[in-house]
């Protein structure tokens, strides 16, 4: 699996969701409550579908771009991606069932199976990257302070991974819009506090989920800045998101194969 794919999956599938929260004071219990709410809002027990566009920039120059459709069924922990553009990627697909990730290569008409033990798609990404957010379980939060991000007043919080947690980023910083409680900025840092990546969320789509019975927030766009290799970055654009139920038998090899006959 392309690492680019993995990166957008990490953000597109995690669906960080945030609902309104009027009364706030960053005492420790309230901070904990906020993080629990962040996790809760990411939970989407129903189906999800979205068209995703990903653009990779290397040293300021666009080197790769593709478009895909993402399907997700959180109740069964199933998801599927079908690449539609460009021609060289079209028809390729990924199907997640149980602990397996099946990769489909239409040029060969063949499938490959990987498990989370071997790293997803030969990358160093972990299964946890694809699972729903468990910030409250895996991290200890700390309120840093109120700051200004562009014209927005934001709450800056840091999250340190708990010793037993198997997480991709040991240290996170989040900037949450004080009014709407949407994440606007996220930093991923190493154990030594070295900044690795910065992610910006300039827009959020609010949708009502019937299965959840509440609003779900979906990022419309994510800008990922590689802080190690300066000039490198990824832009993810999510469009036509839909939370309505998908057909029962869609998460199958036969369905994915049928798309590139």
């Amino acid at each position: 699996m392309k690492k680019t794919h993995v990166k957008f999956l990490m953000v597109a599938l995690s669906l960080p969701l945030f609902a309104g929260h009027k009364a706030w004071a960053m005492s420790e219990p309230e901070l904990k409550k906020l993080v629990v709410e962040i996790d809760d809002r990411q939970r989407n027990s129903g189906d999800y579908k979205s068209t995703v566009f990903v653009e990779q920039t290397e040293k300021g120059k666009v080197t790769q771009a593709f478009e895909a459709t993402v399907f997700r069924r959180d109740g069964d922990e199933k998801w599927m991606i079908l690449f539609t553009k460009p021609k060289s990627e079209a028809g390729k697909g990924y199907l997640r069932l149980e602990k397996n990730l099946f990769l489909y290569e239409p040029a060969l008409g063949k499938w490959e199976r990987r498990t989370d033990r071997s790293g997803i798609g030969g990358t160093n990404s972990r299964r946890s990257d694809f699972d729903q957010s468990k910030l409250a379980v895996e991290y200890t939060a700390k309120f840093i302070g109120e700051e200004k991000l562009g014209k927005f007043d934001v709450l800056h919080i840091s999250l340190s991974a708990k010793p037993e947690a198997d997480v991709a980023s040991p240290l996170l910083h989040l900037w949450v819009d004080k009014d709407s409680r949407n994440i606007l900025k996220r930093q991923e840092r190493s154990l030594s506090d070295k900044l690795l990546r910065t992610l910006y969320y300039p827009g959020w789509d609010k949708k009502f989920s019937k299965s959840k019975g509440a609003d779900v927030y979906i990022p419309k766009q994510i800008r990922i800045i590689d802080e190690v290799e300066k000039g490198n970055g990824t832009t993810v654009v999510l469009r036509e998101s839909n939370l309505d139920p998908l057909p029962e038998n869609i998460f199958t090899k036969a369905w994915l194969e049928s798309q590139s006959r």
Partner: peptide, 30 residues
Amino acid sequence: LFGAGAQIESRSENKSSASQAQQAAAAAGG
């Protein structure tokens, strides 16, 4: 991204359930 004119949040509606299911089912069935 977050300067003057930036709008962070907006609401949009899902397409009807029938539309999405029918669309995918039709694709699966050719």
